[in-house]
């Protein structure tokens, strides 16, 4: 009960800091704050089609965040999640290109998702190996691999996979409709993709909080030297963690290709990997708040398009709010820890 009250106070405190900070900022640029917040709200939850759009952002963002949580549990900063998402997208595109005019489009779709997870996972494993074998810190390996992935996707779009006659930033030739991730008539967000995410959330709850694997991962994250005494090889668990992390990012990437854009575009990751890092930090590295924070961030992303349209404000305000959330969360969590340690 006490814990719950603490979490609630923390949450309200963070919200208060963020709202007052943003309020002041809006006043400074000469905008009416309540209008801006109103547009953000109406632009994200104002109609089913807008809410569906929020969910379409929520799907990959939640997948990336969940993946990141595995890495964080093992004490790893998987900054490479962007690149892993891109590799997943590339793999899915490669498979779907083969499936054009096939008699079994569903088979190719399943294959695309599996290939996306596989390639995302392997790309992550690269930074894992660089860490365990070469002693390269995973932040540097991940960043480097992100740049390589971006180079790769640009090369493919402007080179081997370019459209007939022209190469364009708008990406590869769109896939025929039978190679789109299945949805339901009038839904605007695929219920199957939603189901996939919900299953992933449930699986993650079990894996991280209720399984022996989760316990070991946590132990490795806390004290990699000590776990060896219990016969756990820390490196193996680091690699497991980053493999799962990358596979989930790759899944997100394959959905971006098959479900959202129906083609490969240069910025296929939409920055959700980096945003996922913020989500997990704001969740204080706990699992249960992640889907909700991801929903909040998705709503900000979608709603912010109203600002330039209705108020001639720059839509980067949503980024400011997201950043402010994380900064004030770090502050509040820090204060809480300090208070707790002084009480002891």
């Amino acid at each position: 009960m006490n814990r719950l009250r603490e979490h609630l106070t923390d949450g309200l405190l963070i919200l208060a800091i963020v709202v007052s900070f943003t309020w002041l900022l809006l006043l400074l640029v000469g905008a009416v704050p309540q209008h801006a917040f109103g547009h953000l709200l109406a632009g994200s939850f104002g109609s089913w089609s807008k809410f569906a759009r929020v969910l379409n952002v929520w799907i990959p963002l939640t997948l990336c965040s969940l993946g990141l949580l595995y890495a964080f549990r093992a004490g790893l900063w998987n900054i490479g999640v962007e690149g892993q998402m891109v590799l997943g997208a590339i793999a899915a595109t490669g498979v779907l290109r083969l499936g054009t005019e096939s008699l079994y489009p569903q088979g190719y779709l399943v294959l695309a998702v599996v290939a996306g997870m596989g390639c995302g996972g392997l790309w992550a494993l690269l930074s894992g190996w660089l860490k365990t074998r070469g002693g390269v810190h995973e932040i540097f390996a991940g960043l480097g691999l992100n740049f390589v992935a971006l180079g790769l996707v640009l090369w493919l779009i402007f080179g081997p996979w370019k459209r007939a006659g022209i190469a364009s930033m708008s990406g590869t030739q769109p896939f025929p409709a039978d190679l789109w991730f299945p949805g339901l008539e009038g839904w605007r967000v695929s219920p199957f993709a939603l189901a996939l995410v919900i299953c992933t959330i449930l699986a993650t709850v079990w894996m991280l909080n209720h399984s022996r694997f989760g316990l070991r991962l946590k132990a490795v994250g806390h004290n990699p030297k000590a776990v060896q005494l219990y016969g756990v090889a820390p490196n193996r668990y680091l690699l497991y963690a980053i493999l799962i992390s990358g596979a989930l990012a790759g899944l997100a990437g394959s959905l971006q290709v098959s479900d959202i854009y129906h083609r490969l575009i240069p910025s296929i990751s939409s920055g959700y990997g980096y945003l996922g890092l913020l989500v997990v930090m704001l969740a204080n590295f706990r699992l249960l708040p992640i889907p909700f924070i991801a929903l909040f961030f998705s709503a900000l992303n979608v709603g912010s398009i109203q600002l330039p349209m209705m108020m001639q404000l720059d839509s980067s305000l949503s980024g400011v709010i997201q950043g402010a959330c994380v900064m004030s969360a770090l502050l509040v969590f820090g204060l809480r820890r300090r208070k707790q340690s002084s009480q002891r």
Partner: peptide, 10 residues
């Protein structure tokens, strides 16, 4: 309105 400036907006 381009994927580099407005990621995720189609």
């Amino acid at each position: 309105v381009n994927p580099a400036d407005r990621a995720g907006v189609t």
